[in-house]
Every structure is written in C-alpha cells, then in structure tokens.
Amino acid sequence: MVNGEALATDATTLDSLCRELGFADAKIATALNGAFVPKTERITAELTDGDTVEILSPRQGG
C-alpha cells in the first residue's frame, strides 16, 4: 500500500519506489510500516509484500 492505495511494483527498496513514482527530486518524507525512514536510509530500506508506505509533502496547516 502506498498512501492508502494498493500498488503493484517491482521496486525492492523505498528509494527505488520513490524514483518509480516520480519522487526522485520531490520535497517528500517517507515512512515504512509506520516508522520514519530518513532520506539517506531509503536506499537500504527493503520492501516486502504487504508493506505500508507513506509519502508526505508540505501542505498548508493550522
């Protein structure tokens, strides 16, 4: 699941998933199964079936 939607992907790491989705240079932060994954650690964050990924970016807030 990526941002609440089911996704079939060949990506094996969080970094490759972000690149596959066009987020290579985007202003984003990531979490894998509810845990924050810093940008520098995405390349070693391996994905497995059933993982939940959140990709967030800046928005308006109160």
Binding site: V2, N3, G4, L21, G22, F23, A26, K27, I28, A29, E54, I55, L56, S57, P58, R59, Q60, G61, G62
Partner: peptide, 23 residues
C-alpha cells in the same frame, strides 16, 4: 506560520514543492 504534511500525489509530484517555495 504553521504548516502540515499530507500525502503527495504521484500524479502531481510538485504540489508539495510549490507550497514549500511559497513558504
């Protein structure tokens, strides 16, 4: 000024960047 984080859409990858630039 206060801000938040929300899900980025893969169809519009620049939404967050645009807001960040405005900030």
């Amino acid at each position: 000024v206060t801000v938040s984080l929300r899900r980025e859409s893969s169809g519009d990858v620049k939404t967050g960047q645009h807001f960040f630039d405005l900030l």
